[in-house]
Design a protein around this nucleic acid. Sequence first.
DNA 1: ATAAAATTTTAGACTAATCTAAATATTCAA
DNA 2: TTGAATATTTAGATTAGTCTAAAATTTTAT
Lengths: 219, 219
Amino acid sequence: MISTTIENYIKAIFYLGETATNVTVSAVAERMQNSPASVSDMLRRLYEKGLIEDKNNITLTDQGSFLAKQIIRKHRLWETFLVKTLDFKWDEVHSIAEQLEHVQSSLLTERLERFLEYPETDPHGDPIPDKDGNFPNLSIIPLSEAEPGKSYIFRSVATDAKDFLNHLDNKGLQLGQRWVIIEKEEFDGSVKLLVDDKNEVYLSEKVAKNLNICSGQLD
Amino acid sequence: MISTTIENYIKAIFYLGETATNVTVSAVAERMQNSPASVSDMLRRLYEKGLIEDKNNITLTDQGSFLAKQIIRKHRLWETFLVKTLDFKWDEVHSIAEQLEHVQSSLLTERLERFLEYPETDPHGDPIPDKDGNFPNLSIIPLSEAEPGKSYIFRSVATDAKDFLNHLDNKGLQLGQRWVIIEKEEFDGSVKLLVDDKNEVYLSEKVAKNLNICSGQLD
DNA sequence: ATAAAATTTTAGACTAATCTAAATATTCAA
DNA sequence: TTGAATATTTAGATTAGTCTAAAATTTTAT
Ligand SMILES: [Mn+2]
Ligand SMILES: [Mn+2]
Ligand SMILES: [Mn+2]
Ligand SMILES: [Mn+2]
């Protein structure tokens, strides 16, 4: 009934809806790497299937939103499996999870979740929704909004693009580390950190915007 | 490049090639639950892609055969994972594995195989080929060819259809059991067994043809 | 307020995979 | 060996998903 293609569109619209104020045809086209013409055409089909509210206002219906969260749930559970159980590295799992997220069996998803002992986050620190679509609240902020002098825990990355994750690996940055903000440059947004009381690391604003931290203690 | 649809055709042709002398359009159509017209059309595409030798003689090329074995390998490894790791029952795994077998990542397949500790057979006793496509030799025969009075080990089932597996569950039959052939009726091919020196079980020829045994000792 | 720029939709075409109905080809049996 | 039955292929159509090019609409800037 719902194709893999449609699932990918719904997921794209969900992610865009989280950040952008209003989701546009061209933004979906950009994200899906398709032409705006194809997207326009697809939106008609999504509307006919009751997955988006309206053709002008690209917003997911409850049904569409639930579907998106199920796919994200599967994606993140599989990523966790790949890293925790099969010893993949965090930069290797995204494209495989893109395939596994479309496997349809709610029993499989629940058994996988149980096997992994109900993880709250995936290898990139992203929250894993439960089977009703509820996300755990992680109260994170982007590093770019951190206050100088304060101490934080590195919680998640905003994207799991391979080259970005490799860049973090090269800088020695890992989820769970304690980061003290040494200084923040106003004119370019760059940040200087002390990582685990040991190494100093400089980060550009571009990177800092994609790193999420929380002020709490380690788990 | 190679679609899920094509993978399913190649797998069907491989299985038919194992049993039937010559594979026919109508046999493929029957197995795929498609019309002969669709199959005829698809065979042209398979030939163009170098997956079958000829349009008249439906035989897989080396490339096609290797592809088939890779898909079967993945199917059986995933079935093993579902039963051994996620506690599924043997009659629940086939349809999920039908989806998982199309996930493309040879690294994933190898890591899964390693995690499962290089299993030789899947939950239905079917041999799992290695990454080069070589099957372990299990030297099995159908129960219908067993000799009365002799003792065998129940090694595998020839089909993993859910209703067939449920039938076996109801009779208390499980892989690895020792079966002594008490008698074999010539006129209808039915068989009477002593299972693990405890229970007597009667089986029709239809069932006996789909149960595979070997004469060796337990592993 | 209007023209230019950007965005979106429509029109028309293509591919993969399927179907039914009709035409062909092959096999089998009298 | 020849007509009937069976099997296969072709013809023509359909659906999902994509494209480019052109038309229409909306936004932005002068
Ligand atoms: Mn991912
Ligand atoms: Mn992730
Ligand atoms: Mn199976
Ligand atoms: Mn099996």
